[in-house]
Design a protein around this nucleic acid. Structure first.
Length: 873
RNA sequence: GCGGGCGUGAUGGAAUGGUAGACAUACGGGACUUAAAAUCCCGAGGGUGUAAACCCGUGCGGGUUCGAGUCCCGCCGCCCGCACCA
C-alpha cells in the first residue's frame, strides 16, 4: 500500500465527533470523593470580552496538556473553567449599544464557551462558574461580611485615584504612569469614604511566605517583594523652634539611615503635610508651590520627575544631637505624604535626592560615613552621594562604629529621650503595600452588602437578607453609578432599628471576584463559600498558568484572600498556588498600506524567500511589513482561532502553540508554522494508517535484530523524556522528542514494508502505539482516531501513560568522543561501563591521537566513564 | 536610577561544566508528475583544501578548568518590571 491510497485525516469530522464522546461519557468530570491522588490544574479564567483569541488558545492548551498527562498518570485531575464576568466593558457596551450588561455578558460567555469547546480542552464544564452569577457573588458577600466581623475590613476617608472617564476609583495598582489602567485617562486625586480590605495586616507574612513558593518564577516573587516594599527604619521627633504661624511643637520624620543624623542639613515635609497646609493658608507663595506640587505629582509624574524642588517655610527645628544647632524646614516636592511620616531629614552626603536638593538650595554637605580605605581629611562628596558601607565619623559618640552599630546606638539613645511627652525615636518597619480599596462606583459588580442608617450607622446586611441582588432595571444614560440613580433599589429599612435607610451603592473591585474563584471551583454549588473538607483536599492549585501581567495584582490579592479565608474558617491554608507558570504572548507581524492604515494578516499575501514581499490580496498594492507585536485589535495583527480551527483543526493549532518557542517566551504566529504543524499531523496519521495494515497479531520484538533494538531504544527514550518535559512544562522539547520518534518510526516502517519479520512488526506495533499516546495530550482528537484505527475500543484519553523499560534506556555499546587538549579529534566505540584500561587502549590506538602525541606519552588522560575522554598532550 | 532576564546558523530554538547548532521553519538539489501542488530522499555555521584533514566560530575583553554557550570578573546591546518609598 502506498501513501496515496490513504485518505487524509479530516479534523472537521473527527474533532466534533470525539468532543461529543468525551462530553457524553463525562470523561473530564472530577469527583471530590475519588480516592486517587488529587491534582489541580488551573489557567487564569478569561474575561468574557466576546471572542477568544490566540493567547487563550495557548494558555488553555498548556494547561490541558498537563491535565491530560496527569490523568494518564493516574491522578484525580481537577481542571475547571469559568468567567471573570463583572467589570466595566459590559457597562460600556450597555452605553454604546443599548444592551443590558447581563445579556451582553451571558451572550459572550455562550460564544466563548462554544469556542473553547471547539479546541478540545479537557475541562470539567459541570463546575463552570461566572462571577456575575448571583449564586457566586452571594457567597462573596458572605465572605465580605465574615471578613468584616474578623476585623479585616475598614471604612475610611481617603484620598483616592479617581478615573474621570470611567468615573470610578482605582487602586494604586491600577494606576499606570498616572493613568487609569483600563481607560488610559489621567487620574485625579479625590477624597472619598471607601471600603478597604486590610491587606497590610498580612504584609510581613505575604513577604516572608514568598520564600516558600519555590515553584513560582523568581521574577514574580521579586516583583511582589518590591511591591510590598518593606523597609526598616526609625521615626524621629524634631522639636520645632517656636513660631507664631503654628501651634505645632515638633515634626516627625521617618528614616532608614538614623546613623547619618550628624550629617543632616535640613528637614523636608510633603506638600500634603498638615503643617504645609497650615502654613500655606498664611502664605500665598507657599500655597502656590503646594498646588504646583500636587499638579506635577499626578499629571506629569513621568516627565519631569528628576527636578527636586522645595520652598523654605521659615521654620527651623533643633538638631536633636547638636545642642544649639538648627535645621531649616522645607516643603519639598519629592517627599510623599503616604509613606513613612510624610517628612524626612536630609543628609545630602549619603542620599542622592537629598544631595540634589542641597546643591540646588546651597545647603551644607557633611559626610559622616567614611568608605573603607578613604582618608578622613580628604574624603569629599561631589555630585554623587555615598551610599555604601564604611565607618561613621564627624559624629561625636558614633565615631568609629559601622553603620549597623550606629543605627543601634541611635535607637538606644532616642528611646530614652522624650519630645512632647513621647519617646523621641522608635524603630519602625514600613511597607509600601497599602490596604486594598475595593469600592467602585459602578453597576456591574458585586454589591457591598451593608446598609447606611442615620441612627445606627453602617450596618451589615443580615444573613437572612442575603444575597443583595443587583436590580435588572437600570439605565446608563447618566454618568456615574446606575445603582445610585435607581429609583427604589437603595431605599430599605434599617436591619437594626427598622427606620428608613439606604443601601451601599458601591460595588466591589472585580479583582475581589477573581481572588477566590479557584476555591469555589472545588465545590461550585455549595450553599457556603466553600466546603472545608473538600476545598482543603483540592487546594493548593498544583499548577496555575497565566499571563505575567497578573504578577502583582491578582496573585497578591489571591494570596491575601486565602489568608483571610483561612482566618475566617473557610479553608485551611495560606498559599493558594503551589506552582505558578507565566506564559508568553502570541505575537505577529504587522502590516501597513501606503496610507499608513493597518491591515490584518487575512488581507495580506506574503511571498518570496529571503526577501519577503507583502501585497494586499485584493488590490495587489504593496504593503509594508512592520515590527512583530502582541496580537491586538488596534494593529489588526490578529488571527482568529475560529478560522484556524475551521481551516486546520484544533489539534494543528494546539500543536503549533506548543512547538518551537519555550512556553514562557513569546511565540510568533506564522503561516509557515501552522502549515508545518498541519503537515506533521497528516504525517502521523499516514504513519499510523500504514502501520495498521502491516501489524497483525501480536508477536514479541526480536532484540537480536539491530534495527529492532534501535527503534525500541528510541521509543523508550521518548517515553522517558516526554513525560518529564510535559511535567516541567517544557512543551517545545517534548514536541522535538516526538518529531524524532516519528522520523525514526517512519524509517522503521519503510524497513517493515520491505523486510517484515514478526519481531519487527511487534516493535512497530509497540512504537506506533507509544507515538499515539505521546501525541495524545497535545493532539487529542487525532490520537483518539489513531487509537481506534489501531483496534482499540476504549479511549486513549483514558489509557495509562506508558512506562519506559529501564533496560532499554541503557545503551550496550557507546560511542564516546575523544578530545585532545579539549578539542574533539575522534571517537571510540566501547561497551557501556568499559574499564579504564580498555578505554585507554582504544584511545591511544586512534590515528588522530597518535598523530598528536607524536610518539611521546600523554601528560594526562581524563576519562569520564561512558561520557568523554580527553587526552592532554 | 534600582531590580530581573536575555544575547547561539537565514529564522524559532536545543545543549546535568563533557561531540555546539538536536528538532522545526525557510532555502538549495534530486525522485515522482505532461506540469504544478502534495509526498519522499539528500544537503547545509564560516573558511582553506582535489581529498584526507585543518583553522575559526555561542555579543565583546579577561579569568577559572584537562575541558566553558554553560561558572567568575569587567564591558556593550536588547527586553521586562518598579521608580522621588527617605
Amino acid at each position: 500500500m502506498t501513501f496515496k491510497e490513504i485518505e487524509r485525516y479530516n479534523p472537521r469530522v473527527e474533532e466534533p465527533r470525539w468532543q461529543k464522546v468525551w462530553d457524553e461519557s463525562q470523561t473530564f468530570v472530577a469527583r471530590s470523593d475519588d480516592p486517587r491522588d488529587p491534582y489541580y490544574v488551573l489557567e487564569m479564567f478569561p474575561y468574557p470580552s466576546g471572542r477568544i483569541h490566540m493567547g487563550h488558545v495557548r494558555n488553555y492548551t498548556m494547561g490541558d496538556v498537563l491535565a491530560r498527562f496527569m490523568r494518564a498518570q493516574g491522578k484525580n485531575v481537577l481542571h475547571p473553567m469559568g468567567w471573570d464576568a463583572f467589570g466595566l466593558p459590559a457597562e460600556n457596551a450597555a452605553m454604546k449599544n443599548k444592551v443590558h450588561p447581563k445579556g451582553w455578558t451571558y451572550e459572550n460567555i455562550a460564544t466563548m464557551r462554544k469556542q473553547l469547546k471547539s479546541i478540545g480542552l479537557g475541562l470539567d464544564w459541570s463546575r463552570e462558574i461566572a462571577t456575575c452569577d448571583v449564586a457566586y457573588y452571594a457567597q462573596q458577600q458572605k465572605l465580605f461580611l465574615d471578613f468584616l466581623k474578623a476585623g479585616l475590613v475598614d471604612r475610611k476617608r481617603s484620598k483616592v485615584n479617581w478615573d474621570p472617564v470611567d468615573m470610578t476609583v482605582l487602586a494604586n495598582e491600577q494606576v499606570i504612569d498616572g493613568r487609569g489602567w483600563r481607560s488610559g485617562a489621567l487620574v485625579e486625586q479625590r477624597e472619598l469614604t471607601q471600603w478597604f480590605l486590610k491587606v497590610s495586616d498580612f504584609a510581613e507574612d505575604l513577604l516572608g511566605a514568598l520564600d516558600t513558593l519555590d515553584r513560582w518564577p523568581e521574577k514574580v516573587r521579586t516583583m511582589q517583594r518590591n511591591w510590598i516594599g518593606k523597609s526598616e527604619g526609625m521615626r524621629l521627633l524634631f522639636a520645632l523652634q517656636p513660631d507664631a504661624r503654628t501651634a505645632a511643637t515638633s515634626v516627625e520624620v521617618f528614616t532608614t539611615r538614623p546613623d547619618t543624623l550628624f550629617g543632616a542639613s535640613f528637614v523636608a515635609i510633603s506638600a500634603d503635610h498638615p503643617l504645609a497646609t497650615e502654613l500655606g493658608a498664611q502664605d500665598a507663595g507657599l500655597a502656590d508651590f503646594i498646588l504646583e506640587c500636587r499638579r506635577i505629582g499626578t499629571a506629569t509624574a513621568a516627565i519631569d520627575k528628576a527636578e527636586k524642588l522645595g520652598r523654605f517655610t521659615g521654620l527651623h527645628v533643633q538638631h536633636p544631637l547638636k545642642p544649639g544647632a538648627t535645621l531649616p524646614v522645607y516643603v519639598a516636592n519629592f517627599v510623599l505624604m503616604e509613606y513613612g511620616a510624610g517628612a524626612i531629614f536630609g543628609c545630602p552626603a549619603h542620599d542622592q535626592r537629598d544631595l540634589d536638593f542641597a546643591r540646588r538650595y546651597d545647603l551644607p554637605v557633611t559626610p559622616v560615613v567614611l568608605p573603607d580605605g578613604a582618608d578622613a581629611t580628604s574624603f569629599e562628596v561631589g555630585s554623587e552621594a555615598y551610599t555604601g558601607p564604611g565607618r561613621i565619623y564627624n559624629s561625636e559618640f558614633l565615631d568609629g562604629l559601622d553603620i549597623d552599630a550606629a543605627k543601634r546606638e541611635i535607637a538606644r539613645y532616642f528611646a530614652a529621650r522624650t519630645v512632647d511627652g513621647q519617646p523621641q525615636g522608635r524603630i519602625e518597619v514600613n511597607y509600601r503595600l497599602r490596604d486594598w480599596g475595593i469600592s467602585r462606583q459602578r453597576y456591574w459588580g458585586c454589591p457591598i452588602p451593608v446598609v447606611h442608617c442615620e441612627t445606627c450607622g453602617t450596618i451589615p446586611v443580615p444573613d437572612k437578607d442575603l444575597p443583595v441582588v443587583l436590580p435588572d432595571d437600570v439605565t446608563f444614560d447618566k454618568p456615574g453609578n446606575p445603582l445610585d440613580h435607581h429609583p427604589s433599589w437603595k431605599h430599605v429599612n434599617c436591619p437594626q432599628c427598622g427606620g428608613s435607610a439606604v443601601r451601599e451603592t458601591d460595588t466591589m473591585d472585580t479583582f475581589v471576584d477573581s481572588s477566590w474563584y479557584f476555591a469555589r471551583f472545588t465545590e461550585p454549588n455549595a450553599p457556603t463559600p466553600t466546603v472545608p473538607a473538600i476545598v482543603n483536599r483540592w487546594l493548593p492549585v498544583d499548577q496555575y498558568i497565566g499571563g505575567v501581567e497578573h504578577a502583582i495584582l491578582h496573585l497578591l490579592y489571591s494570596r491575601f484572600f486565602t489568608r483571610a479565608m483561612h482566618r475566617t474558617g473557610h479553608l485551611n491554608l495560606d498559599e493558594p498556588f503551589k506552582g505558578l507558570f507565566t506564559q508568553g504572548m502570541v505575537v505577529h507581524e504587522t502590516y501597513r498600506d501606503a496610507a499608513g492604515e493597518w491591515l490584518s494578516p487575512a488581507e495580506v499575501t506574503v511571498s518570496g524567500g529571503e526577501t519577503r514581499v507583502a501585497r494586499h490580496s485584493a488590490s495587489g498594492a504593496a504593503v509594508e511589513i512592520g515590527s512583530i507585536e502582541k496580537m491586538s485589535k488596534s494593529k489588526k495583527n490578529v488571527v482568529d482561532p475560529d478560522e484556524i480551527v475551521a481551516t486546520y483543526g484544533a489539534d494543528t493549532a494546539r500543536w503549533f502553540m506548543l512547538s518551537d518557542s519555550p512556553p514562557e517566551r513569546d511565540v510568533q504566529w506564522t503561516e509557515a508554522g501552522i502549515e508545518g504543524a498541519s503537515r506533521f499531523l497528516q504525517r502521523v496519521w499516514k504513519l499510523v494508517a500504514e502501520a495498521r495494515t502491516l501489524v497483525g497479531s501480536a508477536g514479541t520484538p526480536d532484540m537480536s535484530d539491530d534495527d529492532t533494538a534501535t527503534i525500541r531504544r528510541l521509543v523508550h527514550k521518548t517515553i522517558a523524556n516526554v513525560g518529564g518535559d510535559i511535567e516541567g512544562l517544557r512543551f517545545n522539547r517534548a514536541v522535538a522528542q516526538i518529531y524524532e520518534l516519528t522520523n525514526g518510526l517512519a524509517k522503521f516502517l519503510g524497513l517493515c514494508d520491505t523486510a517484515a519479520t514478526p519481531g519487527r512488526l511487534a516493535a512497530l506495533n509497540e512504537g506506533v502505539r507509544v507515538l499515539i499516546q505521546m501525541v495524545s495530550p497535545m493532539m487529542p482528537h487525532l490520537a483518539e482516531t489513531c487509537w481506534a484505527a489501531f483496534g482499540e475500543t476504549t479511549l486513549v484519553t483514558d489509557a495509562p501513560w506508558p512506562k519506559a523499560d529501564p533496560a532499554l534506556l541503557i545503551e550496550s555499546t557507546l560511542v564516546i568522543p575523544v578530545q585532545v587538549n579539549g578539542k574533539r579529534r575522534g571517537e571510540i566505540s566501547v561497551p557501556a561501563g568499559a574499564s579504564r584500561e580498555l578505554v585507554e587502549k582504544e584511545v591511544l590506538s586512534l590515528d588522530a591521537v597518535a598523530r598528536m602525541l607524536n610518539g611521546s606519552a600523554p601528560k594526562k588522560l581524563i576519562i569520564v566513564p561512558d561520557r568523554i575522554v580527553n587526552v592532554v598532550v
